[in-house]
């Protein structure tokens, strides 16, 4: 058999195709949960929280529109010029897939094309009422169909590991952003009332990541918010927990090193070590007392550094450095 080699450009495209699709799925989850959080009379604040947790204040302000619920929905679901929205992310995923056509399965490419065409046809009226939740479901299913087809048809050489690294880094990042939603949604009212409202919100967060029932199975009877945070950060049986993502990132980096003899993994593995230490080093209670938002910021920064190490080790070489980063894939 032929020796297994992978063009650096393909590795980069696989990494980013994985990232962009994961981002699309998570945006749909965020939109869905935001709609569920909408408290009467405070809709705009609920939706603007989404802008904040995505650090999109500046991008949104460029449009010059007031931060109403409709404008935020449009910003993420319809505005093709918003680089952090669903249309642009899907466009970028498809462009990467187009580059990867020699490598990916025909079924992967076909599903991507059909999904892309479907998303381009989203109409304004699908953003309202009960239709929004169904739209979010359709978007999630589009990415999930991609995931399933990829799992079942994509050849498992080193390309698979790069694809998974992109997905997992993005997934870990998105879970921290979803957790952060609590920080931005302060609930008014008396203590007891507030606690109940908070628990309802945490239930919503769990549902958004499809983790509600799993959480109930492992949570103590009188669970507290701290248990939810622990679950989403550290439960290595939960597919979207940060800890499981980090564990799997380490696995795929290890595969690149041991199976394919790629030596550039050292710096990235060190970053993974730091991430893990940060996650399990302190009791969750302490993390919350010291400031959850601050902690999550730190995790997001570490993930950006990790992605940068992988880029430097494996992707940077194919393009002359003088040209700088590629046009669409430079964002952390």
């Amino acid at each position: 058999m032929k020796r297994n080699t992978l063009l650096a450009r393909y590795a980069e495209s696989l990494f980013w195709m994985g990232r962009y699709l994961e981002r699309v799925e998570n945006l749909a989850r965020l939109i869905d949960v935001t709609q569920n959080f909408e408290s009467p009379g405070r809709e705009a604040e609920s939706w603007f929280a989404m802008i904040r947790i995505n650090a999109d204040e500046e991008g949104f302000a460029k449009g010059g529109l007031p931060p109403t619920a409709d404008n935020v929905k449009r910003f993420y679901l319809l505005d093709r010029d918003n680089p952090t929205g669903i249309p642009a992310s899907l466009e970028a995923a498809r462009t990467n897939a187009r580059t990867l056509r020699p490598l990916i399965s025909t079924e992967m490419w076909m599903q991507m094309n059909v999904f892309h065409r479907d998303m381009l046809s989203i109409q304004e009226d699908e953003l309202h009422g009960d239709r929004l939740s169904r739209l979010c479901g359709r978007i999630k299913e589009g990415v999930q169909a991609h995931t399933g087809i990829t799992e079942g048809t994509f050849y498992r050489d080193q390309g698979w590991d790069f694809y998974q690294l992109g997905r997992l880094i993005e997934r870990a990042d998105q879970t921290t952003r979803l957790l952060d939603i609590r920080y931005h949604l302060l609930v008014p009212g008396e203590a007891a009332e507030r606690k109940l409202a908070e628990l309802t919100q945490w239930g919503g967060v769990l549902r958004a990541v499809a983790g509600y029932h799993a959480f109930r199975r492992v949570a103590p009877p009188g669970f507290e918010p701290v248990d939810v945070v622990g679950f989403l950060l550290r439960d290595t049986s939960f597919p979207r927990s940060v800890a499981l993502c980090v564990e799997q990132i380490e696995y795929h980096l290890g595969q690149l090193r041991s199976r394919y003899g790629l030596h550039g993994t050292v710096a990235a593995l060190e970053r993974v070590e730091e991430l893990r230490a940060g996650l399990i080093g302190r009791p969750i209670n302490t993390i919350i007392t010291d400031g959850l938002h601050h902690f999550l910021d730190g995790v997001q920064r570490d993930l950006i550094l990790l992605a940068a190490e992988i880029g430097t080790a494996f992707f940077r070489d194919w393009r002359p450095l003088a040209e700088g980063q590629s046009q669409s894939q430079s964002q952390g």
Binding site: T5, L6, L7, A8, R9, A11, Q158, F162, L256, Y260, G261, L262, G264, F314, D317, W318, R319, P320
Partner: peptide, 16 residues
């Protein structure tokens, strides 16, 4: 951009 020439030989840039 995937190819380059060094010492009159052609190479491609791979992850390895």
């Amino acid at each position: 951009a995937d190819l380059f020439v060094e010492n009159d030989r052609v190479w491609m840039r791979t992850t390895a």
